[in-house]
Design a protein around this nucleic acid. Structure first.
Lengths: 157, 157
DNA sequence: CCTTATTGATCAGTATGCTGATCATCAGTA
DNA sequence: TACTGATGATCAGCATACTGATCAATAAGG
């Protein structure tokens, strides 16, 4: 493993680099301007109306300081709105707008195409195995990053 | 694959996030202050003395505009030096310093430990398979990113 | 030889990600 | 109730990555 080409860390960076490039290309070809990070946040807000930012960050494993800017840009594009919480005045509730819903629906085919394209060198069985192995490795190392995944109780497997 | 947890792109981001965190933690514990990107560049310069920045970028798949800042920081730490090329006055030759060599040697155990730690949830066979699948997927999609890998002729396999 | 295209390096601008700090607010306890 | 600690959000600062532009220098062509 002395060779760079065999180091998991190097390959992780490279695969992520390609994944982002493929995502952006497919989404732009479909006529949208949304990053992978913005898409994940938008989808999570759609699935969890009135979620607060910290809980959202846990759901998609973002750092809490990163989420602020992501939501800023989604709000500026008119896809989500921030609303003050009645229960806790520190907290902001996040809601998807009608335009956000339309965008999310319209963009989904491009997102799925990107997922296939980034593993186009693999057979379907190999792609499934790659997903399984990444999930397993990630699960065992979840707490090693500052932004671990925090699944909702209903989402356990 | 509608679920985020099964999307290769999401897993790629998450795995990379963990890989970086593990790398930084191991390297810091060993008493050094070097990012994964800086380490890869330093190792590539050590293996290819007097390499220019564009060729270096191709060897480790960095964007040409990213390499400038990375070399800036390596130079500021005294690990590499930039030297004007005699052949082509546009080009800068990169050389590792003695301190760079010492750092590279001393840091290697921590880097290798990090590689093992980021796949600690996998058996050795599974880790090898993950590396194989990532390499295969990356090879097939290499040209889809702005910073493709450009291997030297002697490094083909 | 001179024009044109290409190339190596850098820069401005934008978007993640992180460290560590701050501020307001809330919760638990003496 | 007053104090203490924890929490939600944001900010400043730094390091990747990328888009697109610029500039100097080289290469290729007629």
């Amino acid at each position: 493993m002395t060779e760079m080409r065999d180091m998991p860390g190097h390959l992780a960076r490279r695969f992520q680099q390609i994944a982002v490039a493929v995502f952006l290309a497919e989404v732009e070809a479909a006529g949208f301007d949304l990053t992978p990070v913005q898409y994940a946040a938008l989808a999570a807000i759609a699935a969890n109306p009135a979620i607060d930012q910290i809980t959202l960050a846990g759901l998609i494993a973002y750092d809490r300081t990163t989420i602020t800017g992501v939501i800023d840009r989604l709000a500026q594009k008119g896809l989500v709105v921030r609303r003050a919480s009645a229960r806790d005045r520190r907290s902001r509730e996040l809601l998807i707008t009608d335009e956000g819903k339309r965008t999310l629906e319209a963009i989904t085919p491009a997102v799925e195409a990107a997922q296939r394209l980034m593993v186009r060198g693999l057979s379907a069985a190999e792609a499934n195995e790659l997903v399984r192995l990444m999930r397993k490795a990630i699960a065992a190392a979840n707490d090693l990053s500052r932004a671990p995944l925090r699944e909702g109780a209903a989402e356990e497997r």
